[in-house]
């Protein structure tokens, strides 16, 4: 897949995901665009540096920062953006594969896939938290 198709698919997937959670209309294009950009960043880092955890971390961090900016520019809550935008990165395939190996009684493979999946989920959540507090810290010192 090219960069553009990656961007397009994650844009569309997040757009409809946002509609599913009844996100405000005004936020839709912005959230979807952030989701697309983040996913492309993830693909680029994974392909060029060969590290998935780093990809998850940096891509989510960038998305988190973009969401914080979008929330302040559009005067909406950060939750509106961030919960939708990170969805393409959530390791659905990993969760499925883990289960697939468990039902095949192949526990070794299940652990091999399961642990990185769990770590990916943790990394995403942590990167969002870090971006939130980085912005808070920045604003705190900026205002002084």
């Amino acid at each position: 897949m090219t960069i553009f198709t990656n961007f397009f698919y994650s844009f569309m997937a997040s757009l409809f995901f946002a509609l599913l959670f009844n996100a405000p209309k005004r936020s839709l294009p912005v959230t979807a665009a952030i989701a697309g950009i983040g996913y492309v960043v993830f693909i680029l880092i994974t392909q060029n540096l060969g590290s998935k955890p780093l990809g998850f971390f940096l891509a989510t961090l960038i998305m988190g920062l973009l969401c914080e900016i979008a929330a302040r520019v559009l005067k909406m809550t950060t939750t509106t953006f961030v919960t939708i935008a990170v969805i393409p990165l959530v390791p659905g395939l990993g969760i499925y594969r883990t289960m697939q190996f468990i039902v095949q009684n192949n526990y070794e493979a299940a652990v091999q896939i399961g642990i990185p999946t769990l770590l990916a989920a943790g990394t995403i959540a942590l990167a969002i938290a870090i971006s939130t507090f980085a912005v808070k810290l920045f604003l705190h010192f900026w205002q002084q």
Binding site: V86, A121, A125
Partner: peptide, 11 residues
């Protein structure tokens, strides 16, 4: 998948 719950949990 519980993306929202997971993110909110860490936050």
């Amino acid at each position: 998948l519980p993306g929202l719950a997971m993110t909110n949990a860490i936050r």
